[in-house]
């Protein structure tokens, strides 16, 4: 049976984004079914504009060189790779309402749902992660 990985992305920094998408793409590449629930600042990770300029944690800006040197893909590239491999993105409706965001503000192919949408998937997950 296929393993199921449920991820909650609730932070909007660059490091958070790498943690979420690296785990998600690695799991998808390992034939696992992956859903990510993006909520609060985590929505930035799939926002068309915001995910191109996610902030480094304060005082860690010097890592930018390291990222370039290690040839790490950009967050928008990783998000596209994740989707291509079947990772499902769910945007949190409630946060979108609070922040005045529409589905069109996000990368194509996302679903929008409430907490129950995610819980329904997560109840049978083999691995649940929160970032």
């Amino acid at each position: 049976m296929t393993k199921r990985v449920a991820i909650i992305a609730s932070n909007g920094g660059l490091f958070d984004a790498y943690k979420v998408f690296n785990i998600a793409t690695a799991a998808a590449a390992t034939d696992q079914e992956v859903d990510i629930f993006f909520t609060f600042e985590g929505l930035n990770l799939i926002h068309k504009e915001a995910n191109k300029q996610l902030p480094m944690p304060e005082g860690k800006e010097h890592f930018a060189d390291g990222f370039a040197k290690a040839n790490v893909p950009s967050i928008s590239e990783l998000a596209a790779i994740a989707q291509e491999m079947g990772v499902k993105f769910i945007g949190c409706q409630m946060t979108m309402d609070v922040m005045g965001l529409e589905k069109e503000d996000f990368v194509d192919g996302i679903e929008v749902g409430g907490a129950v949408t995610f819980l329904e998937f997560a109840k049978d997950a083999d691995v649940t992660l929160t970032f």
């Binding site: 690296n22 690695a26 590449a29 390992t30 790490v72 790779i81 491999m85």
Partner: peptide, 13 residues
């Protein structure tokens, strides 16, 4: 070559 995690695995898949 030259690719960082998780790309080698993604490409392998």
């Amino acid at each position: 070559k030259g690719l960082a995690c998780p790309m080698p695995i993604v490409k392998t898949k």
